[in-house]
C-alpha cells in the first residue's frame, strides 16, 4: 500500500529517530512510503492559542500538500486529530471545506493504521524490560484511538507492561499552555513523572511527540533513569 507520511514538525526537527522508525516499521509491513516535502506544521500551536486566521495559512498549505494521497499516516495522535479538525475550521468555506473533509477521511494515526487498516497486531518487535504507557489526551479522547497501542505493545516480545496510575490525566503539555501556565504545567508533569516512577518501569512509551518531550524533559531535569520511547521506536526494536 502506498502511504503518504505526515511526519509532524516535532519529528522533522527534533525526533528524526521517530520518523525513521515509523518508515522502517511501515516498510517492513509492506507499505511504500511517500514523503511530500511541502509539509510543514499542522497549525496547532497557533490554532490552540486562538489565532485561527494565522493557523489557516498552515492548514491550507497542508491540505494542498496532502490531498492527492491515498492514505495519510502520522506518528502523532494530536496532529492526526488536528487534520480531522480542519473540516470544522473551514465549515463555512465552500472551497476548503470539501477539501478538508477528504483529508480527514484518509488520515490515520500510526497505531490505528497498523491495527485497523493493515490488520496487524504483532509486528515482530522485541524489547526486553518493564514499560508503562501514557495515553495522550487528544489521541484517546478526541481521536478515539484507545486500544490499538495496547494491542501492539502486548505482542512485543520481552516487554512487560505495567499500568500507569491516573493514566487518564493530562501530562500538562497542552502546547503553549506549557509555557503560558508554566507553574501549573509543572505540577501536572511532576505528578505524571511520579506516577511513572511508581510503576518501576524502565521505559515510558507514548504515541505523541509533544507529550513525550514534556514528560521526558521533566524526567531528565529530575534525573529519573527512565528511557522515553515513542511507540514507533518500540515497534521498530528487534
Amino acid at each position: 500500500m502506498k502511504v503518504t507520511l505526515f511526519a509532524t514538525c516535532i519529528v522533522d526537527m527534533f525526533q528524526s529517530d521517530v520518523g525513521i522508525a515509523t518508515v522502517e516499521v511501515l516498510e517492513r509491513l509492506g507499505c511504500e512510503i511517500v514523503f511530500p516535502t511541502g509539509q510543514v506544521c499542522c497549525g496547532q500551536p497557533a490554532y490552540n492559542s486562538g489565532y485561527v486566521e494565522d493557523a489557516k495559512k498552515a492548514m491550507k498549505k497542508m491540505i494542498a500538500t496532502f490531498e492527492d494521497a491515498e492514505v495519510i499516516v502520522t506518528p502523532s495522535g494530536s496532529c492526526a486529530t488536528m487534520f480531522k479538525e480542519y473540516q470544522h475550521v473551514f465549515k463555512d468555506d465552500p472551497v476548503w471545506r470539501p477539501r478538508a473533509e477528504r483529508l480527514a477521511e484518509k488520515t490515520y494515526e500510526l497505531t490505528e493504521f497498523i491495527v485497523d487498516v493493515l490488520k496487524v497486531e504483532d509486528v515482530g518487535a522485541k524489547l526486553d524490560g518493564i514499560a508503562t504507557y501514557h495515553p495522550s489526551c487528544h489521541m484517546t479522547r478526541l481521536l478515539g484511538v484507545k486500544d490499538a497501542p495496547m494491542k501492539l505493545l502486548s505482542h512485543v516480545e520481552g516487554l512487560e507492561m505495567q499500568p500507569l496510575p491516573n493514566a487518564q490525566n493530562c501530562c500538562g503539555f497542552g502546547g503553549t499552555f506549557a509555557v503560558k501556565m508554566g507553574n501549573i504545567s509543572e505540577q501536572m508533569v511532576d505528578e505524571k513523572v511520579d506516577s511513572v516512577s511508581e510503576t518501576k518501569a524502565s521505559y515510558l512509551i507514548g504515541a505523541d511527540g509533544g507529550c513525550l518531550m514534556n514528560i521526558g524533559g521533566r524526567m531528565q531535569r529530575r534525573d529519573k533513569p527512565v528511557k522515553v520511547m515513542h511507540i514507533a521506536e518500540v515497534l521498530n526494536s528487534r
Binding site: A7, V11, D12, M13, F14, Q15, S16, G19, I20, F35, T37, G182, S185, E186, V189, M213, N214, G216, G217, R218, Q220, R221
Partner: peptide, 14 residues
C-alpha cells in the same frame, strides 16, 4: 525553567 528541551536534529528527518 522546569524541564529540558531537546536540541534540534543535526539532520532533519526530511
Amino acid at each position: 525553567e522546569i524541564r529540558d528541551f531537546p536540541a534540534p536534529n543535526k539532520e532533519r528527518f526530511r
